[in-house]
Amino acid sequence: MTRVVPLKGMRGMIADAMVKSLATAAQLTHHASADASALLAHKARLADDGVKVSVEDLLMLAVVRALKKHPDA
């Protein structure tokens, strides 16, 4: 037997916001893969030089450079 218990306080507000978001925003999931071996090798070389960066940092740098080179793409 299933029993429904209404949410109160903050949990209720969060639940309402999540339902509203689901109802008003487009739902899309996209999965892609890429060969990141060169990116990871570059990250390792930077780490050897004492520079700590994340993969996301390097991806953002690549995106910025690509957009500067191709601003209308």
Rank of each mutant, 00 (worst) to 15 (best):
R65N: 04
P6V: 06
H70K: 06
H70W: 09
L40G: 06
A25G: 12
V53Y: 08
K43C: 03
Q27Y: 13
A23Y: 05
A23R: 09
Q27E: 12
I14M: 04
A15I: 11
L40H: 11
L58P: 00
A47Q: 09
T29F: 02
R65S: 00
L22A: 15
M10R: 13
L22R: 12
G12T: 04
L67H: 07
L7P: 01
T24E: 15
L40W: 14
R11F: 10
L67C: 09
A62S: 07
L7V: 05
D48Y: 01
A23C: 14
S54L: 00
V63W: 07
A26E: 14
R45W: 11
L7M: 10
S37P: 09
V5W: 08
R3P: 01
M10H: 15
A17T: 12
H31G: 02
T2L: 13
Q27R: 09
D49N: 12
A62P: 02
V51E: 04
S33V: 12
V51I: 08
K8F: 09
G50H: 02
D35R: 01
K52G: 06
P71L: 00
L67P: 03
L39S: 02
M1Y: 13
K20F: 11
V19W: 07
V19R: 04
A23P: 14
A34G: 05
A34R: 03
V64Q: 05
T2G: 03
V63C: 05
L40S: 08
A36R: 10
P6D: 14
D72M: 03
R65W: 00
D48C: 05
M18K: 15
H31F: 12
A44P: 09
A26M: 13
V19T: 08
R3N: 08
L28Q: 08
M13E: 13
V5G: 04
A44M: 05
K68S: 03
G50T: 02
K20D: 15
V51N: 02
V4L: 15
V4C: 14
H70P: 02
P71G: 01
D16K: 01
L61I: 05
A41N: 08
L22E: 07
V55M: 04
V53N: 08
A15K: 13
H30E: 11
H42S: 14
Q27K: 11
D49G: 13
A41P: 06
H70F: 05
A47F: 04
L59Q: 03
T29Q: 10
T2I: 14
I14F: 10
A17K: 10
T29R: 12
A25I: 11
